[in-house]
């Protein structure tokens, strides 16, 4: 057995996973937060203003990484959901279920900042732009997964149902995005596309953006481990190791 499969098997044991999460959680949190503060300070004060969009483009340092995270987390949710359905691995169920609210939060941030960017740039908070529209539908897909998992009492059944819905959603996402682009070109005159001057980006603006993308992933790792810990505790509440954990007051 190679080292990776061995590690994976060990993580299948809840106490080992809990200890692993407890050890790495703070590292992910602090590195993510520090990196985010660093990247955002850089982006806010030490990069030139965009000649086309002025100062408002600085919203993109939040908007773009959040939008990336919205899609990335959905993929993680569906892939771990697939693993959970096929191999019945409890940990994969937990990862899939715990990812949903984090991904929904990032997608909501992407939508809110996108419309805030639209006001000074397009002159309105909302246009039925292809990217905004497909992000909105992505948020609805997240709501569906969360709603389904909340509506089923049995936790493992809820995780499996949500996982299946996430897989169906993942298969659909490229189709939805393509259809929305198609719809957009059918209906939208080119007025909006004129202002999409941000396809080529200056390196001085790119660095903070990439750092933010790393920072959001670190934060996701923290939030995921944290939520997974809570779910593990709930599932294992009768076990000895949880008792010991709860009994020792210094552990909190």
């Amino acid at each position: 057995m190679n080292a990776l499969t061995l590690w994976f098997h060990r993580m299948g044991s809840p106490p080992t996973f809990y200890a692993f999460a407890e050890r790495w959680r703070p590292w992910f949190l602090w590195s993510g937060l520090l990196l985010a503060v660093f990247a955002l300070t850089w982006g806010l004060f030490f990069t030139p203003a965009d000649y086309l969009q002025g100062e408002s483009y600085r919203i993109l340092y939040i908007h773009v990484p959040s939008a990336w995270m919205g899609q990335f987390v959905f993929a993680v949710m569906a892939v771990s959901g697939f693993v959970a359905l096929v191999w019945r691995i409890k940990l994969a169920e937990i990862v899939s279920l715990a990812s949903a609210p984090i991904g929904a939060t990032f997608t909501a941030v992407a939508l809110a900042t996108g419309s805030l960017w639209g006001r000074p740039t397009w002159g309105t908070y909302w246009v039925w732009d292809a990217r905004l529209t497909s992000t909105l539908i992505l948020l609805f897909l997240y709501f569906g997964v969360i709603g389904l998992s909340r509506a089923i009492e049995d936790r493992r059944k809820a995780a499996r149902a949500a996982a299946l819905l996430a897989i169906v959603g993942l298969v659909n996402i490229p189709i939805i995005q393509y259809s929305v682009y198609w719809w957009n070109t059918l209906h939208q005159p080119s007025s909006v596309k004129l202002l999409r001057g941000d396809t080529t980006i200056d390196p001085s603006m790119l660095w903070p953006l990439l750092l933010m993308a790393v920072a959001t992933k670190l934060y996701y790792a923290y939030s995921l481990l944290s939520r997974a810990q809570v779910m593990v505790l709930e599932q294992e509440s009768g076990k000895d190791w949880v008792r010991r954990l709860a009994g020792a007051p210094a552990n909190d």
Binding site: L40, L44, E55, R58, I59, I62, H63, V109, A112, P120
Partner: peptide, 12 residues
Amino acid sequence: HWPFVAASYVIF
């Protein structure tokens, strides 16, 4: 533009 930038960062 700054109120919109500020609002985004605050929301985040």
